[in-house]
Design a protein around this nucleic acid. Structure first.
Length: 102
DNA sequence: TCTGTGACCGCAC
DNA sequence: CGTGCGGCCACAG
C-alpha cells in the first residue's frame, strides 16, 4: 500500500466518535498540506468493511460530499446519525458543534 | 509523456 | 445563502 494512503487512514482513525473532520484537515494532519483531493481518492479506494471510519470525513463546508451514486451519501448520513452526529435533510452538519478540533 | 477526471479548498461575486 | 473559477495533485488510459 502507498505510504500516503497509510498516513491518511491512520489520521482518519484518530477522529473521535461523534465528531467529523474535513478532507483538508485530514490532509494537513497526515502531513500532506493542500492535498485534500488525495484524501478523497484514498477514501474512494477504501475496501468495504474496513476499520477506517470514512463516514466521519466531510468537506470544508460541513456537507456530505456528493458522488456518482447517492446511495453512498445516504449510508454516510445514517452512519453519522448512528454515531450521534446531527445531519439535516440537505446533508449539512454544524461544524461548531461536531467539528473535530485537534 | 500527455490528457482528462475527481468523495477538495478558498475566495470573489 | 448560491455559483463560479483557479489552484491543487494522484491516478488511469
Amino acid at each position: 500500500m502507498h505510504p500516503n494512503y497509510r498516513a491518511i487512514y491512520m489520521t482518519v482513525q484518530r477522529i473521535p466518535p461523534g465528531k467529523v473532520a474535513s478532507y483538508g484537515q485530514i490532509a494537513r494532519l497526515a502531513g500532506l498540506p493542500g492535498r485534500a483531493r488525495q484524501v478523497g481518492y484514498a477514501l474512494h479506494a477504501l475496501p468495504p468493511g474496513s476499520p477506517v471510519p470514512w463516514f466521519r470525513v466531510v468537506n470544508a463546508r460541513g456537507q456530505i460530499s456528493q458522488r456518482e451514486t447517492t446511495g453512498a451519501a445516504n449510508r454516510q448520513r445514517d452512519a453519522l446519525e448512528a454515531d450521534g452526529v446531527d445531519v439535516d435533510d440537505r446533508g449539512r452538519i454544524d461544524l461548531k458543534q461536531f467539528g473535530w478540533r485537534a
